[in-house]
Amino acid sequence: MTMSKVEQRLAALGVTLPAPAAPIANYTPFVRAGSLVIISGQLCLGPEGKIAPQHVGRVGAGVSAADAASAARLCAINVLAQLRACIGDLDRTLRCLRLGGFINAAPDFDALAGVMNGASDFMVEALGDAGRHARSTVGVASLPLSAVVEVEGMFEVR
């Protein structure tokens, strides 16, 4: 079986998409409506399905901005894993329309955009120009499993 162009790009980046994470509450990991796919918020789970200690807690209060950006990248990897579970071949992705980022941040930490760039930069690396997207980034008081970042996405697909 031939590897898709997106999977080839991921391999060149040293990224293997994990098995998609199962929901931890009453929701579905993705919903498809026509050519749109909405991916539920994905946590910064590593390849083994766990959150690394450096990705637990609040950025600006024990978690560095660099570690939080790395967590955002993991979230984006998990978003793509869910997208692949929905559409099969990632080459069917026409565009990443939107990413939403939730950053578990100390009240005085305002460098949220740089943290979310971990997810945004990865999406462009993985999808090329089709990875350029609109986005929102919000600082929050807490996230599930004490994760430092959660990222959701919306995609246009064939």
Results as ranks from 00 to 15, higher is better:
F109I: 00
I103K: 02
V151P: 07
S4V: 08
C75M: 01
T16K: 13
L99Y: 06
V15N: 05
K50F: 11
G153L: 12
T28Y: 11
A113F: 09
I39H: 01
A72K: 00
G101S: 15
L74Y: 12
N104M: 04
P20V: 01
A76Y: 10
G60Y: 02
L10G: 07
L127C: 03
G88N: 06
T2P: 13
T16W: 01
R92E: 04
L17K: 03
P107C: 03
V37C: 14
L43H: 05
P23H: 11
Q8S: 13
M1S: 15
H133P: 08
R132Q: 15
A76M: 13
S136G: 14
P29C: 00
G153V: 10
A134S: 11
C75P: 00
T93S: 06
G46N: 10
C96P: 05
L90I: 02
D110I: 07
I39Y: 00
T93D: 03
E125M: 09
I24H: 07
N104L: 06
I38R: 14
N117L: 13
T16A: 14
V138S: 10
R58K: 15
D108V: 05
G100V: 09
R73D: 01
A65I: 02
S70I: 09
L143P: 14
G114N: 09
I24V: 07
